[in-house]
Nucleic acid binder design. Structure first.
Length: 298
DNA sequence: CGCATTTCCTGGTAGC
DNA sequence: TGCTACCAGGAAATGC
């Protein structure tokens, strides 16, 4: 599982199943983990009518607003866009949820840190609880599909697993940019859904130093990067699926099965490819691990 | 507009 | 045991 890096403690607990959570990924939710949650959620809520959606143990404010809009509405679907969960309602309005680091959904009422409850009009489960101990998450209902209050969602780049995500598309957003490649990928506008872990993995696979100015990355490397992103996320979603099956069988098993991390959390140990020790440093305000030999600056 | 920096928030851990 | 210090993370806000 996750190698524990020297500094800091365990990874965030998002998705770790307190009793009854729908997904027990032991990872901070990035695209594959959110996809797993969406797949678990859909059969439970699609087509059902909400009696109400209410804030529980959470302050009023922009992180939990518009919930009254969902009253009496049918949930048409559960979708994912980047790391956002979208639930279009019969009225045309949209529930938008971001898990942050520690957001989870569950049908069983947790003891604490419940931020929002979804109450259904008949059927089972009767309620779903959104739990988020660290309150990095967000749960709002917006009018129609007006995402202007969620600028990252409004300006989100292409879905990495869509055909539209090509090396050419990636290249187009890199042209003339001085921002480091890691910062660019974390920014969600070049491509949607990557977080700290998968950015490090993809840059390693493509042999790109995380601080390389985006505009200076050669086309050849951008093609490698695009392919690495697609492959790594695809594999991780498979692993999420495994986690989901595990949950159905027996809960308590940690997620990330089958995800083979090649760099993240391996600082100070030898590179799996060349044997040089991985370097750890802060890049783009994130703990970053890379191989100084396989990933050279420009 | 681009880009860098700061803030939000709490649980877990290290060290005393 | 109890205390302090600090770190993890994504998005939004702020500053230049």
């Amino acid at each position: 599982m996750f190698a524990r890096s020297g500094a800091g403690g365990k990874r965030g607990e998002a998705g770790i199943a307190p009793t009854g959570a729908l997904c027990d990924n032991a990872e901070v939710p990035e695209l594959p983990e959110v996809e797993t949650v969406v797949r678990a959620l859909r059969p439970l809520v699609q087509g059902r009518t909400l009696r109400r959606v209410a804030r529980v143990d959470a302050p009023a404010g922009p992180k939990y607003e518009g919930l009254e809009r969902a009253k009496g509405q049918r949930v048409e679907d559960v979708r994912r866009r980047g790391k956002f969960i979208l639930m279009p309602l019969g009225s045309g309005d949209t529930i938008v949820v971001h898990l942050g680091m520690t957001g989870t959904f569950g049908a069983e009422r947790p003891r604490d840190h419940v931020r929002v409850e979804m109450v259904f009009a008949g059927g089972s489960p009767a309620r779903l609880y959104f739990r988020d101990p660290r309150r990095f998450g967000r749960f709002v209902v917006v009018e129609g599909e007006d995402f202007s209050r969620l600028p990252t969602l409004a300006a989100l780049g292409p879905e990495p697993l869509d055909p539209a995500f090509t090396a050419a598309a990636l290249g187009a957003v890199c042209v003339g940019r001085t921002t480091g490649m890691k910062a660019l990928l974390l920014g969600q506008r070049a491509v949607a859904g990557l977080g700290n872990i998968y950015v490090d993995e993809a840059l390693f696979a493509a042999g790109i130093h995380p601080e390389t100015p985006a505009g200076a990355v050669p086309g050849r490397r951008l093609r490698l990067l695009r392919d690495a992103i697609v492959e790594i996320l695809g594999r991780a979603i498979e692993a999420g699926g495994t986690t989901l099956r595990d949950y159905r069988q027996v809960s308590g098993e940690s997620g990330g099965n089958g995800v083979n991390l090649q760099v993240y959390g391996r600082g100070g140990t030898p590179c799996v490819r060349c044997g040089a020790d991985y370097v750890v440093a802060e890049v783009a305000q994130r703990t970053t691990t890379w191989c100084p030999r396989c990933q050279r600056r420009r």
